[in-house]
């Protein structure tokens, strides 16, 4: 009964949305954001348009995004037992995985660094690098390589908050020195974006890994 009603409603919604999507696709937007970005790209401090939008033109969204991530990370980790993060339990005894991890973890760290650097002039950037960093951390956890920095302590706090706080600091300095909130000094925007991106990468990697560690612990019956 319920399934039937939901299916009918879903079909109805699809029937309404499809013409809307087609209408939007055929509508003339007037101004093209693409050309707008291209004409201003030089002023952004980076050469890759997506990075320019993320870290300069729409940096506000990125700032809020890392804020959301920090809140999610803190919430997730505070729900887990503190002890489980301190002592990584050996989760896999697969010898092949161990052998691969010895090769993959350094390679993944290198890849993350390259993605971060590439972001200024070609596809890549803080988000992709942060995700690869987190994946390297997951691999280290799975194979029991030491991950002491994810244990509660100053390292974890610093790693979690560095991206957001430095981003906010740069934004506030911009506002206090007479430019707009989040406006970079024109000559420094390239280096500033790189610094912010580096810290964002570390923070994103740490938050995602922290959430994985918080989710992956097993404490069911022994509490």
């Amino acid at each position: 009964m319920k399934a039937g009603v939901v299916t009918v409603l879903a079909l109805l919604l699809g029937g309404i949305l499809a013409p809307v999507v087609v209408a939007v696709a055929s509508a003339d937007p007037g101004t093209s954001l693409h050309t707008l970005v291209q004409t201003r790209l030089e002023a952004s401090g980076v050469e890759h348009p997506v990075t320019a939008v993320l870290l300069n033109f729409r940096a506000y969204d990125t700032l809020l995004e890392i804020g959301v991530l920090v809140v999610a990370g803190i919430t997730g980790m505070s729900l887990s037992r503190a002890g489980a993060r301190a002592e990584p339990e050996l989760r896999s005894t697969n010898t092949l995985l161990h052998a691969l991890a010895r090769w993959f973890v350094p390679l993944m760290l290198l890849l993350a660094a390259w993605l971060l650097w590439a972001g200024s002039h070609r596809p890549g950037g803080a988000f992709q690098a942060g995700a690869v960093l987190a994946a390297a951390g997951v691999m280290m956890r799975l194979t029991g390589l030491p991950t002491a920095w994810i244990a509660p302590g100053p390292m974890l706090r610093l790693g979690l908050s560095a991206g957001f706080s430095v981003f906010l600091l740069v934004a506030a300095v911009g506002a206090l020195t007479g430019r707009a909130f989040l406006a970079y000094p024109p000559l420094l925007s390239g280096p500033l974006i790189l610094v912010i991106e580096t810290l964002l990468t570390l923070s994103i990697g740490m938050i995602l890994l922290g959430l994985y560690v918080a989710a992956a612990q097993r404490d069911g019956a022994d509490e």
């Binding site: 997506v50 988000f127 987190a134 994946a135 997951v138 995602l208 992956a216």
Partner: peptide
């Protein structure tokens, strides 16, 4: 390509590990 890189690392890598681990839990 930016989205493809992020999706490959996140959608396939991290989501996969998280969900499979949850299933076994």
């Amino acid at each position: 390509p930016d989205l493809a890189l992020a999706e490959a690392a996140i959608g396939a890598g991290l989501t996969g590990v998280l969900l499979l681990d949850a299933v076994s839990h």
